[in-house]
Design a protein around this nucleic acid. Structure first.
Lengths: 156, 156
DNA sequence: CTGCGATACATGCAAATGCATGAAGATCAG
DNA sequence: CTGATCTTCATGCATTTGCATGTATCGCAG
């Protein structure tokens, strides 16, 4: 019947998301327990990591916000804390008086590298044994595709 | 050189996790904005949902905790709030004096269904257009495999 | 049975988060 | 140029979260 043709895809999408979400929870739970995040919260590391990947070194606060699962106000205060700890520096954006640019300090970059190494080891020990190299590549392709599609969408 | 043979798999695992995590963030960001979560936080819904899937209806608090990305104390208080709102009921576990069993009330079950419908629609509109049915199935298979492997692991 | 360590859940308290709002700059129609 | 509106970031305040700890129960060695 007609209902089936519209129900089934919906159900499949929901189950797919459920699986993706649970896998993320399971992995994240293990990662958070690792000693890599003893002194730096996961969201804080995420900011340091994102800054470390930024070619120019400087990144707008609002661009950072797209990347991280945090409200704008929470990110504002998170960055404030990182600045107090001497891990990042703020600078008014030259071309936009409202904007704020962020950059890692040397200390922040060093800390990111150190935690990053530990973090990558933990990830590898979780993901490596779970999936073959080919499966990992395929998983990467699919999640990239999903993210691009969702990100590109106008959003509500 | 030898280094490459050990570096490459580590790098692949890290990139795979990165992609998975970012996709989760991107989708979650959209879902949270949906009106489905105007009155019930995502973690609260997750608890209601998990209870709704439980065959016996009753679930131990500690089992619930494995499923959700929350500390034990936070879950304890979250459940306390749900109970105050009349969405769940607590009961001492019959076979273990320390344990607490949880069950949805009729009102809780009804609310879960209502939010769930909305939620599933949102998911479908995000995931559906992003991946073909075959890709969704494959993504589901890979994330299930990852979760099973990670969950089965003794943990640190 | 007794005592010791482990497990399950609750609670005090400090820290982090989100919502609503505010302030300041940008953008644009007229 | 001017005023209305939007964007960007910061801040007050209530809620939520996590860590450390407390209490009660369980399981087990002796």
């Amino acid at each position: 019947m007609a209902a089936e043709r519209t129900e089934a895809p919906t159900r499949l999408a929901a189950e797919t998301w459920e699986s993706l979400f649970r896998a993320q929870v399971a992995v994240m739970r293990k990662l958070q327990a690792g000693k890599a995040f003893k002194n730096v919260a996961i969201n804080e590391y995420d900011v340091l990591f994102t800054l470390s990947r930024c070619p120019s070194g400087w990144l707008r606060l609002n661009e950072l916000n797209d990347h991280v699962l945090l409200s704008q106000s929470s990110l504002s205060r998170l960055v404030e804390r990182l600045e107090k700890r001497g891990l990042v520096v703020r600078q008014p954006a030259p071309d936009d008086g409202r904007g704020v640019l962020l950059k890692l300090t040397d200390e922040g970059a060093a800390l990111q590298k150190e935690i990053g190494r530990e973090h990558v080891r933990d990830i590898s020990s979780l993901v490596g044994p779970a999936l073959t190299a080919a499966e990992q590549k395929e998983l990467q392709r699919l999640t990239d595709k999903l993210r691009n599609s969702v990100g590109a969408r106008p959003g509500k």
